[in-house]
Design a protein around this nucleic acid. Sequence first.
DNA 1: GCTTAAACGAGACGGTACGTCATGTCTTAAG
DNA 2: CTTAAGACATGACGTACCGTCTCGTTTAAGC
Lengths: 192, 192, 192, 192
Amino acid sequence: MSTTPVGRPRSESARRAVLQAVDDLLAEVGYAGVTMKGIADRAGVGRQTVYRWWSTTAEILLEACVADARDELRTVPQPDARRDVLGYLRLLEAFLLHSHAGLCYRVLLGETQHDGAVRELVARADILAPSARACLRRVGPRLQQDLDHDLHVAELVGPVVYAVLTTGGAPDLEALTDHLLAGWSRGGPAGA
Amino acid sequence: MSTTPVGRPRSESARRAVLQAVDDLLAEVGYAGVTMKGIADRAGVGRQTVYRWWSTTAEILLEACVADARDELRTVPQPDARRDVLGYLRLLEAFLLHSHAGLCYRVLLGETQHDGAVRELVARADILAPSARACLRRVGPRLQQDLDHDLHVAELVGPVVYAVLTTGGAPDLEALTDHLLAGWSRGGPAGA
Amino acid sequence: MSTTPVGRPRSESARRAVLQAVDDLLAEVGYAGVTMKGIADRAGVGRQTVYRWWSTTAEILLEACVADARDELRTVPQPDARRDVLGYLRLLEAFLLHSHAGLCYRVLLGETQHDGAVRELVARADILAPSARACLRRVGPRLQQDLDHDLHVAELVGPVVYAVLTTGGAPDLEALTDHLLAGWSRGGPAGA
Amino acid sequence: MSTTPVGRPRSESARRAVLQAVDDLLAEVGYAGVTMKGIADRAGVGRQTVYRWWSTTAEILLEACVADARDELRTVPQPDARRDVLGYLRLLEAFLLHSHAGLCYRVLLGETQHDGAVRELVARADILAPSARACLRRVGPRLQQDLDHDLHVAELVGPVVYAVLTTGGAPDLEALTDHLLAGWSRGGPAGA
DNA sequence: GCTTAAACGAGACGGTACGTCATGTCTTAAG
DNA sequence: CTTAAGACATGACGTACCGTCTCGTTTAAGC
């Protein structure tokens, strides 16, 4: 029951040229250069062609980086919980600070704050959480805990993200790992 | 030895009108409406007057919200560490989710990601950290720990900020408080 | 071997709207209203569209009036030299004082005095001289003289132009005609 | 019965500085630089001071050049009519083409075409006519004619002014002189 | 092989914000 | 009461990007 497409098929080369162009522009001239017109010109593509397949620069950025992001955040299981968490945090730090896809992610997270459409888009893409959940699923059992929840994701990822967003640098990941594992290993409240 | 200013003095009413205008515009028409032209028109002020005192919309936003932010994040000491931390986290959540100044902060944090000048500006203003440090200075002694460091600030603030930025909602603050205090109360590494 | 133009073709309606607008503005609100912005708004045309095809208001004015000017200054041969010259001078007076295109010409001649680019433009368009030369070519043979020179053009046209530019009125054209023909009919120097 | 002036008297040095500034600006950066603000800054004078004594740049220009113009166009009587007229035309050409005051005059004449206020101002100042009339009053009697009329002024001055305004150069003054004197020496109509 | 139909590049279109500049008015303190 | 300084509201300047439109030209699929 699939409708057979009629007319000239979509050009794969144009699609790739656009995604490449947005990546290059972001790296070379910064976000100010990421413009529908700029992307089209850089890609050697008609403006209408860009608008035909994407509505906003955010959509293009997302498509350009989301696959790379998944790859770069893929962790391998480690023999003990500490090394597992620490390994993930180091991967996350590298992603946010030095990766091309990480730069895209930060820019998109920024755009999210003043554009509801982008918020929906980025939320659906869910870039960081899956990798964090994978790590937590491995670590949880070894702490006799179930750690696969939004709160745990936020605790694991939040401090690094916050530090990178505000100061442009990452915190002491070893100490962070210790605090996290200590906090998770006993569930009771701690008073003064 | 102060140089006596010469010429017509700066108009305080124009300054206030601009700060009010940027606030109103952000709330009413969103960030897209926060435009140098839009601000000037809304404030009933010449465009040149805006440019004379501020270079970018980010600078105006910052000046418009920074004082409010400090006030809204001022905490009162609590009798025990748990209530102190929990109180601060609730204040932070309210600030980020429902406050006018918090909206400004999120927008500025977003802009920070693709504009180096804004990054410098926002970093210097240092909006969240002071309040977090005040909380940590009170809690630390009760845990026989020194908690006044960048890492602790990131651990305290990061999860909430991350959750708000990505999902638009806050995590379970009570559980977060317990995890934080547990993580901080014993400094040694925790293995599997 | 002509290169086929690519892309959307120029809009003839926009072109006409601009030329009409500049004409209307000059007549209705005076030269102060002849503004790139004003023209664009009046023509219901984007500002960029005006700049795409004309660089200055002077260019638009010139294009708006040059064709009309040629038409309005077209003379018909007269049976004798006196009537021919007088007819031309009356046409010239009417053109300068009452015609729409003549108003354009005077404004352009004014602009010429403090703008080198306009000078070049107006000089190339050569609005008055052709009609004057046509008259002189007809009159010359009847005076057994060759009158088709820059000096003769200046003598024919200059007094009227000068009077209109300075006083806003024209001199006695009949007497002027007599003086001109008398001056031209004998070539020798006249002493006191 | 003279009213004694009260308060600080007008500064003569400020007046001279303004007139000098407008002259310099016209010569150095062209008419585009002749601006109320530019004049004030160049003269080292408050903007309000300029507005207090002059309403427009045209008024300042006029005051700056009118006295010089009169001086530069002052002729000395010559023994015969031809030398008298030719001398005057040469003076006029030099004034229009090479004199500072002549540049002012041309600019003002230009402004006149699209500004009624300037027209009135320049007409009242009557810069060229007096010198032309002086020449005509000397020449007339030697031709047994009365030549002191607006038409004669236009015939004498118009061709040179027209040539300078349109082409930026002057015509053959000797031939022009001959034609003028021939045209004036017999008053009757000349037919083909 | 011809027709149909959609995608393609190019680029003009009407808008609008940008940051700069000159306008003419005003508000100071100094003389 | 004039002066220099300079802030003020206004509005045109020329540039850039927006998203839409109108061209002539591919590029397949289906008749």
